[in-house]
Design a protein around this nucleic acid. Structure first.
Length: 423
RNA sequence: GGAGACUUGUCCGAGUGGUUGAAGGAGCACGCCUGGAAAGUGUGUAUACGGGAAACUGUAUCGAGGGUUCGAAUCCCUCAGUCUCCGCCA
């Protein structure tokens, strides 16, 4: 959520930046400013009236104590008159407050100046590429065939148990998941991230905190009986750990990592986009989240990008890093880097990580603040990224590492998997 | 699932309708004392929003939300959570 004071003071700049994100409804900015002005006026009136009522009530108390009952009764009448208009004012105030919140929440985060112009994924900028493109042998096939060949995932039984998009990992496929999870968590904790294992269902307040509610409830599974939501990413419970907290400057940076299954309903899409492990309803992901001082969030971003890049390099996969253009960025992000692994047998790039700086957009909503040495409180900046999402990493490993003998795993996984090759 | 007790500031803890944003203590910060420290002692010690150049000031907040009242931490209702006992399950 954008900060109202900033919008008020920089209305034109806000509009310019929103256009870069291809946000159409710029009138909303003016509407928000108008509502804010109205709100503050109402607040003023309400509070001074309330102040008068409070003072009168105190006087009544004093009069009662002195047994001057008649005078007290007279005061009561006086207060009663104020109360009617106070009620009206309070009602107006609540309405205006709600309208303002409803509107301001629809404004996406402002893009950083480094974000490239553009509207579609085609306009994202490739920052760099790394790893080696494999030379595939003649019998090379896409990962969904390899999964069958080595009996790693039983999609059909997954359908039987739950429905499409719920893979049943099996044998070496299941063990590979466990190996990757363990490796990624170790990699992250070695870099100073504290490991968490959060609840997989969250309540409304938590879903609201990271912005899944109110608008995107459609992408989450909803347990209506208990008003819980299955998490679409560990980012949701993990970032909310610090919701409504004020942290000491010396506690920064806060670095957290968590493995969780992720649940996504996401309708639409068809064809090869959803084949095999390319897009599923339940998948495993390890997330990294940082809460940092606002002045250092961009060096933290660089650090996180380098962290994920190192992890991909260790997996010996061909990858590229994209800086997303304004139109392709998520609602809450100020700048986003996507990591894609080249899936050799499909001849396409698969997104395996997305690292973003949200600046104060999420923390404003969640009221995650910092108390600095001078005693001033200010909003922290939040960042997160995947390190990494498993299904597409598995797809990448299978497709790029396939040989006539089997899938040759990268060295870092050997001890975790207990073997060097899947055959 | 049944019965009961409870939820106050960083922590402990008082407070059952009237200047209570909240006694007292601990902790913490700064100062005095000391060669230095401890002890002692003094002062300070929530958050948000609004007004003000500032000093300061208004409103709200005692688990959350609603209600009664001129006035609620205190009374009523709903919800959440914690603890104890019983039942059930692992």
């Amino acid at each position: 959520m954008l900060q109202i004071n900033y919008i008020r003071q920089h209305a034109d700049l806000v509009k310019t930046k929103l256009s870069k994100k291809h946000f159409a409804d710029l009138g909303l900015v003016d509407q928000v400013i108008a509502l804010d002005e109205q709100l503050r006026k109402l607040k003023n009136e309400t509070e001074s009236l309330q102040s008068a009522v409070n003072a009168a009530s105190k006087e009544i108390g004093v009069l009662m104590a002195k047994k001057e009952l008649e005078a007290a009764e007279a005061k009561k009448l006086e207060v009663a008159q104020h109360k009617t208009s106070l009620q009206q004012l309070n009602q107006q105030l609540a309405d205006t407050e709600k309208r303002l919140l409803d509107d301001i929440i629809k404004l996406p985060n402002l893009p950083n100046d480094d974000v490239p112009d553009g509207k579609t994924p085609a306009e994202n900028v490739v920052v760099r590429t790394g790893g080696e493109m494999p030379t595939l042998y003649d019998g090379a096939t896409p990962h969904w065939d390899l999964i069958k060949k080595y009996d790693l995932v039983d999609f059909e039984t997954g359908v039987k148990l739950t429905g499409s998009g719920f893979p049943l990992y099996k044998g070496k496929g299941a063990k590979l998941q466990r190996a990757l999870i363990q490796y990624f968590l170790d990699f992250n904790t070695t870099a100073g991230y504290t490991e968490y294992l959060p609840p997989l269902m969250v309540n409304e307040a938590t879903a609201y905190g990271t912005g899944q509610l109110p608008d995107k409830e459609g992408q989450m599974y909803h347990v209506t009986e208990d008003k819980f939501y299955l998490i679409p990413t560990a980012e949701v419970p993990v970032t909310n750990i610090y919701r409504d907290e004020i942290v000491k400057e010396t506690d920064l940076p806060i670095k957290m990592t968590a493995y969780t299954p992720c649940f996504r309903r996401e309708a639409g899409s068809f064809g090869s986009d959803v084949r095999g492990l390319n897009r599923v309803h339940q998948f495993d992901k390890i997330e990294i989240v940082q809460l940092v001082h606002p002045e250092t969030s961009y060096s933290t971003l660089d650090e996180m990008v380098a962290h994920v890049e190192k992890l991909l390099q260790s997996l010996e996969l061909p990858y590229r890093i994209l800086r997303l253009c304004g139109g392709d960025m998520s609602f809450a992000s100020a700048i986003t880097y996507d990591f894609e692994v080249f899936s050799a047998a499909q001849q396409k790039w698969l997104e395996v990580s997305s690292v973003s700086n949200f600046e104060a957009f999420q923390t404003n909503r969640m009221k995650i603040r910092l108390k600095d040495a001078s005693g001033k409180t200010q909003l922290l900046h939040s960042l997160n990224g995947s390190s990494l999402a498993l299904p597409r990493i598995v797809a990448g490993l299978l497709e790029n590492k396939q040989t006539a003998e089997g899938i040759v795993l990268p060295k870092v996984l050997h001890s975790y998997f207990g073997a060097a090759i899947i055959m």
